[in-house]
Amino acid sequence: MEDMNARSPVLVLEPQRGWGLVRSAAADLRAGLRLFPLAAALGWLDIKMRYRGSILGPLWLTLSTAVMIGATGVVYGYLFHMDLKTYLPFLSLSIVLWGYIGTVVNDAGTVFTQNTPLFHSMRIPASLPVMQVIVRNLLILLHNIVVVAVVFAVFRIWPHQIWSLLFSLPVWIVDSFCVILLIGMLGARFRDIAPIVASLMQIFFFVTPVIWKPELITTGRQYLLLDPFYSLLEIVRAPLLGRTVDAVVWGAALGHSVLLWLLAAILFCRMRSRIPYWI
């Protein structure tokens, strides 16, 4: 535990039990939050470095998303016999939002293992690389939102109920933090986690109403609520498209979230100090 207010910082390290685990986990979180500006800078550098030396730079993100949405929109619009005027806005928003979810979850498995040299060269709060992944993916999301804006503009649709983001985005941010922490720790301990998660996300992409509209399911739609990604996607997507979100969908989103928070908190308290041993 660190006390930065003291003139000389004091660091006491010993095995913890019970509340001690919670206190040292909380101290680690506080130390991480103080380093948030650094996490933000690192997240931005990740993107800058990936496109260093390319002509379009981060605009490649926007461009490849546009190509993806254009191609999927035409093919699936034809297959599902959808009217492009309603389908394309839905699809662009879905794919961009899913892009965020998918990469956050996939990046999570290697969040600690990728930073091994750093973790072995000094004491680092575990939440620092976690925040770095969130910032990086939020920046990618911002690049991709441009495509959604263009699609909306082309079809002369104005996003509805923008205020709803005030409620849904905080849930997304906290969920991102917890899911990265949780899968990151598991991935540090078991190297099989990252590939398992990657293939699960493939399945979820098709099972969750991302490229197809939830209305296509007529019977048994309530089972969709068991898919955590459905309700979480819906609380952001539906209001923007002008549909109302059922209370039960919000309930499912919060239920899944709380479960995730609890799991992540318990595991983080127990496993935090073992991360440098595992990686």
Binding site: V12, L13, H120, M122, R123
Partner: peptide, 23 residues
């Protein structure tokens, strides 16, 4: 001592600003 590996048993107490040149 740098606080990278926390003790499995026993105790380490450090007071003061610290810099590690390990790697």
């Amino acid at each position: 001592l740098a606080g990278i590996y926390e003790p499995v048993a026993g105790r380490v107490r450090l007071e003061g600003t610290m810099r590690t040149l390990l790697d």
